[in-house]
């Protein structure tokens, strides 16, 4: 009884800490990035297959963040040009693309990147900017995470690396696409794109 009670009491005491981590966007972000880096740089990472690592990254991202936020922002007004079926497909394909990009970035380094997080700036009650600098292979890059507090918790809504916004970059690509083609062509292109991901030279330009 005593042990059970003590366990329960410990959980009760620790609960706010966990929820606070969830409530603080910087802590949530750092925890996710640390966990993602561990997939590649923890001592037994070399024994894991690429697929296992990719799966871990996929779970980590989808459990921590709602990628539809970034996808919908990248789509902008083009979202309404898709049928409901295409919207669902787009959602799944974009998620695969983000997971692939994250996996490629993290798996390409030899040494574990060093990340320094600067002070979080509250732009309003529900929007923050978290500046950071990433040092990898002797070069340092500035990365700013923009997060918003939605009903589902703090969510990343843009990542700005060296002054280049992830969302604006995809918005440009999608705007250019919809000027000439439709949603079906976009879905087809994304599927082909993800299929040929192993060989960059095969990517259709």
């Amino acid at each position: 009884m005593k042990v059970t009670s003590l366990l329960f009491a410990s959980v009760a005491l620790l609960l706010p800490c966990f929820l606070w981590a969830e409530a603080d966007p910087a802590i949530k972000l750092q925890n996710t990035i640390d966990a993602a880096l561990d997939v590649f740089y923890e001592p037994d990472a070399a024994n894991k297959s690429g697929d296992a690592k990719r799966q871990q990254i996929a779970s980590l991202i989808s459990e921590s963040y709602d990628l539809s936020i970034i996808m919908r922002r990248a789509m902008g007004r083009n979202w309404k040009k898709l049928t409901e079926k295409e919207q669902n497909e787009m959602h799944a394909l974009f998620e695969q693309l983000v997971i692939k990009v994250t996996y490629d970035r993290l798996s390409s380094g030899i040494h574990k990147p060093k990340i320094h997080y600067d002070t979080t700036t509250y732009e309003s009650d529900n929007r923050v900017r978290i500046p950071s600098s990433v040092t990898v292979e002797g070069s340092t890059y500035n990365v700013v995470y923009r997060m918003g507090r939605l009903s589902s918790g703090w969510q990343i809504y843009d990542i700005i690396a060296e002054d280049i916004s992830f969302v604006s970059n995809y918005r440009q690509q999608l705007d250019d696409h919809f000027r000439r083609k439709d949603g079906a062509a976009l879905i087809k292109k994304l599927k082909e794109r993800l299929k040929s991901e192993e060989n960059i030279a095969e990517i259709t330009i």
Binding site: L97, E162, I164, S165, N169, Q172, I203
Partner: peptide, 26 residues
């Protein structure tokens, strides 16, 4: 270039956006 190409839906548009954002910021 490889990083950009590997993450793009349309590499041409992606490079265009990245370049213009970078230069405007500079």
């Amino acid at each position: 270039y490889d990083q950009m190409k590997g993450s793009a839906i349309d590499p041409y548009s992606s490079l265009k956006s990245a370049f213009m954002q970078y230069r405007r910021s500079a």
